[in-house]
Amino acid sequence: MDIDVIVDNIPFFLGGLILTFKLAVIAISGGIFLGILLAQARLSSRAWLYYPATIYVHFFRGLPLILVIFWLYFLVPVFTGHSLNEFSAVVISFIVYEASYFSEILRSGIQSVPAGQVMAARASGMTPFQTARYVVLPQAIKNMVPAMVTHCVVVFQDTSLAYVIGLREFLRRINLVDAREARSVELYFFAGLVYFVICSLGGLLSQRFEKKQLKGAHF
């Protein structure tokens, strides 16, 4: 059991962890933004919005993220003429991919608000925009927070896939040190521990929010 290999490389790993967080934050925000657009398209009654969005979502949900990363890495240069640098390739792939998952969470959150709520709001004279802003969205957001937080934790874990394009995020750095020092057991144990702690915190956060939710739900 040689802990030194971990301790000596902490700054190196920390740099990787920061990059991991950066990637996760960008992927999550971009994914949610695009996800909102997709969700609205999937809820719309206009065929020209609904069908492309539905195909998009089913397409990306049926593929492994790693394949999407490669596919876009090859595809984008064909259209833009430049080859893609690693970080951009990964970021675009993440946003495009995770958006399909976020859109489904958003969509089911909105659909979980009973139709009667919309009717009540409209009956009292509210415009569609007001209905959405004051009645539908607050409830929808409350309903979807657990699934959202869980998926953010998943995205955080997915960042480890950036490994395949050589991006030096946290896991890649662990792997590099392992290749040099061959202390696999300690290193991967350590990596597992770091991820475990961060993701467990995310899970606990989601649970606390759910508990608060239940407390407030007395009718």
Partner: peptide, 23 residues
């Protein structure tokens, strides 16, 4: 369940491939 849910699949894979034989 908690161990597998909170640790990315890649880490598990690496553990099985690189670390497990050493054990």
């Amino acid at each position: 369940v908690q161990v597998f849910r909170n640790i990315p699949f890649l880490v598990h894979l690496f553990f099985w491939y690189y670390a497990a034989p050493l054990l």
